[in-house]
Simulated scan of single mutants.
Amino acid sequence: MEISESTVEHQEHEATDSSGDEKAGPPHEALFLVSAYLPLFELLAVSGVCRTLRDAVNTDVLPWLNIIVKAPLNLRISDEVLKKITSKANGRLRSLALMNCANVTDEGLQRVVEQNPLINKLYVPGCTGLTPDGVIRAAKTLSENHHGLKSLMIYGIYNMNKQHLETLESYLQINRSQQKQPGGSRPLLFHEYKDCPTSRHDNGHAAIDVQVCPKCDEVRMVFDCPRRTCWTKIDRPMTDCRGCNFCIPRCQECGGCVDCEEMEEAVCADILCSDCWLQLPKCDFCNKPYCKQHAGKGYCPPGSTGFVCDVCYAKFIVDLHSVVE
Rank of each mutant, 00 (worst) to 15 (best):
residue 2 E to N: 13
residue 9 E to P: 01
residue 13 H to I: 09
residue 13 H to G: 10
residue 14 E to F: 08
residue 18 S to K: 10
residue 20 G to N: 15
residue 21 D to F: 11
residue 28 H to E: 15
residue 28 H to F: 03
residue 29 E to K: 09
residue 34 V to T: 14
residue 36 A to V: 01
residue 36 A to Y: 02
residue 38 L to Q: 05
residue 45 A to T: 11
residue 55 D to S: 14
residue 56 A to V: 06
residue 58 N to K: 08
residue 60 D to T: 13
residue 61 V to A: 01
residue 62 L to G: 07
residue 64 W to R: 11
residue 64 W to Q: 08
residue 65 L to M: 09
residue 75 L to N: 04
residue 77 I to L: 15
residue 78 S to T: 15
residue 79 D to N: 02
residue 80 E to H: 03
residue 86 T to Y: 03
residue 89 A to E: 06
residue 89 A to D: 07
residue 90 N to W: 05
residue 94 R to N: 12
residue 97 A to F: 02
residue 98 L to C: 06
residue 100 N to Q: 13
residue 103 N to D: 07
residue 109 L to M: 03
residue 113 V to W: 03
residue 113 V to K: 01
residue 118 L to Q: 08
residue 118 L to G: 01
residue 118 L to C: 12
residue 122 L to F: 02
residue 124 V to T: 00
residue 126 G to R: 04
residue 127 C to D: 00
residue 128 T to P: 01
residue 128 T to L: 07
residue 129 G to N: 00
residue 134 G to W: 02
residue 134 G to S: 05
residue 136 I to G: 02
residue 139 A to G: 02
residue 140 K to H: 11
residue 140 K to V: 02
residue 142 L to Q: 00
residue 149 L to Q: 07
residue 157 I to R: 01
residue 158 Y to E: 07
residue 161 N to A: 06
residue 161 N to C: 08
residue 162 K to T: 11
residue 167 T to G: 01
residue 174 I to L: 08
residue 174 I to N: 04
residue 177 S to D: 06
residue 178 Q to V: 12
residue 180 K to M: 14
residue 182 P to L: 02
residue 185 S to E: 10
residue 187 P to S: 11
residue 190 F to P: 02
residue 192 E to S: 14
residue 195 D to M: 04
residue 197 P to T: 05
residue 198 T to K: 03
residue 200 R to W: 04
residue 202 D to T: 08
residue 205 H to S: 11
residue 207 A to T: 10
residue 207 A to H: 08
residue 207 A to M: 07
residue 211 Q to V: 09
residue 215 K to A: 00
residue 218 E to N: 05
residue 223 F to D: 00
residue 224 D to C: 12
residue 226 P to L: 09
residue 227 R to H: 10
residue 229 T to R: 06
residue 234 I to F: 08
residue 234 I to S: 06
residue 240 D to T: 13
residue 243 G to S: 09
residue 245 N to K: 13
residue 251 C to P: 02
residue 253 E to T: 11
residue 255 G to R: 01
residue 259 D to L: 13
residue 259 D to R: 14
residue 260 C to R: 14
residue 263 M to I: 13
residue 274 S to I: 14
residue 279 Q to A: 15
residue 282 K to A: 10
residue 283 C to D: 02
residue 284 D to I: 13
residue 285 F to D: 04
residue 291 C to V: 06
residue 296 G to H: 05
residue 300 C to F: 09
residue 300 C to Q: 15
residue 303 G to D: 01
residue 308 V to I: 15
residue 313 Y to S: 05
residue 315 K to T: 09
residue 315 K to I: 07
residue 316 F to M: 07
residue 322 S to I: 09
